[in-house]
Design a protein around this nucleic acid. Structure first.
Lengths: 216, 216
DNA sequence: ACGAAACTTTGCACAGCCTGCAAGATCGCC
DNA sequence: GGCGATCTTGCAGGCTGTGCAAAGTTTCGT
């Protein structure tokens, strides 16, 4: 009678796996946030999640990977969104649009990501692993961009666009965490992309649109 | 007391140290280029340089550091050059100008750097360690830029400029090595910075300034 | 419900990276 | 030659990460 339970998603086994995975990830973030990356061992993280340290490495290939989250999946979804943007939109604007949906995903786990970015800020070794975590993801991205603007794959533009926008987005995310989310991530990303689209001109000390309050 | 320098340069001891250092670095590059990063141990590198593996770690804090060269020193010289550029030059152009002198330094060890970039390309784990190797150097750079354009240190522009130009330069260096130096590094850097200054517009299949040979 | 099959967890052994410490070798200088 | 500073080396040890096989758990067919 019992509705033949679909094993793929609702299965007990998968729920357990997901629970341990998040338990390990959150324990890692919490401990590293408190004590620093070098002061936390895999054994301590595993103990906090009630599994053996060997099991830790069944879930994450390295200590770092437990901290940064699944950048590859995020990147894959980003590529998919990018492919959906109408092809007549210029590449830079298309990337910004596709990022908009990634930003929404981050907002859904706001606290987690703020903590994560805080950990990364205080342990800069992790910084390079954010956005474009691997050469593979990076190349998939450049391929999509190359196809979009219609240039050969060995042209410099696609690679330049992806690496530069990746850097800009990562920086925006760090600034977002630095202010504990006071300014919205979307705002900070917009600001960075506006500067990029404008050719990175010097910002005047006095802003034209709104005068600063610097005395005389 | 003797304020006159310890024989910093001509002494036998310093010559020996320099020789060991370059022996370790070149042995590391040669071995890793041939067998791959994971297939080469510190012990093998040390043996190739005729020192103990313990001595290796007296020269380099990690295996990676023997491969990437002294990015910190390079970065420091870059900051110095940047400070010498007249302050009325816009920041992006100033960075490009200062990079010109860095490029000349790389040209002086052309073969070494080509090999190094080749190794980095084939072992992408090393990629993040090029340019802006540390948070410290990065911050020194942003401080100089902030002072140059006259904005507070927490403004987003200086950090954005340094991280973006760093990414662009790194990419240019990789492309340089990918073609074994067929196109000059200066050319590739110019191309990237032109695109940045123009706001990263889509490169049309037909170029406006110089008509391409595409028919019709 | 029972048991086989598939999967997960765990312990163990082991290679490799990296660090602190102390002894010994080498170099600079008088 | 001899003293002090510096460099090299071996040793012990902790941590990361991997392969393997035993033990435990879930799934599925009958």
């Amino acid at each position: 009678m019992t509705p033949d339970s679909p094993p793929a998603d609702g299965g007990l086994r998968d729920r357990k796996k997901r629970r341990t995975r998040t338990a390990l990830a959150t324990a890692a973030l919490r401990l590293v946030a408190e004590h620093g990356l070098d002061q936390v061992t895999v054994e301590e993280i595993s103990a906090a999640a009630d599994v053996s340290s060997r099991t830790f490495f069944n879930y994450f290939p390295s200590k770092d990977d437990a901290l940064i989250g699944d950048q590859a999946a995020l990147n894959a979804r980003f590529v998919a969104r990018l492919a959906e943007v109408p092809p007549e939109v210029p590449a830079l604007a298309a990337v910004r649009a596709a990022l908009g949906e990634v930003i929404e995903e981050l907002q859904e786990d706001r606290e987690l990501w703020l903590l994560r970015m805080d950990v990364v800020t205080r342990n800069p070794v992790l910084l390079p692993r954010l956005v474009s975590a691997g050469a593979e993801a990076e190349r998939a991205l450049t391929d999509v961009v190359a196809a979009r603007v219609g240039v050969p794959a060995d042209h410099g533009f696609p690679a330049l666009l992806t690496t530069v926008t990746g850097a800009a987005f990562r920086l925006a995310a760090l600034r977002w965490a630095a202010t504990a989310g006071a300014r919205s991530l979307a705002d900070l990303v917009d600001e960075a992309f506006d500067a990029l689209a404008a050719g990175l001109p010097d910002p005047g000390p006095a802003r034209p649109s709104r005068p600063s309050r610097t005395p005389s």
